[in-house]
Amino acid sequence: MNHSEKSGSEMELATFYLGDACCGINILTIQEINRLSDITPVPLAPDYVKGIMNLRGQIITVIDVGTRLGMTCGTDTGQRRNIIVRHENESIGLVVDRIEDVICIRTEDIEKPPANVRDIQERYFDGVLKTDKRLVSVLNLAEVLSAQESKH
């Protein structure tokens, strides 16, 4: 969805950490951010599915974004959060290691992912963004949440 917005409009990016990497997603896709509550693991599910949980009477799938992106996860420092996003009429939880702040960016500032991003990861990223402090990888939510298995 971010592809189409590269015309130069502003957008707000909610940023979070997966291990050491700072990632961001369009804040408009976020429904709410919760602490990690009881997650029921689903045996035989794809490895990136952390489990399912009860979100006010609705059962939602919780995705471990780190595993999905093939990243090494940081240790749980009690700061893990569950970002509930609304995508294709379904609420899905994304487990991230730590929530950072919301930054306001211009979409034209998003650059192509660096060449050394590995193949698997490439499709999950729309690009990277340089801020004063750090590099933010902008996630392509549609790819991250696609139910297709990642091609290796």
Partner: peptide
């Protein structure tokens, strides 16, 4: 009975999920 999300559609063995009295989810 509540349906499972699309990531679990290919996952065999379950007919759905349900929310138990304590708020936790059971398959």
């Amino acid at each position: 009975v509540k349906p499972l999300g699309r990531h679990l559609k290919t996952c065999r063995g379950y007919a759905g999920a349900t929310i138990m009295g304590d708020g936790k989810v059971a398959l």
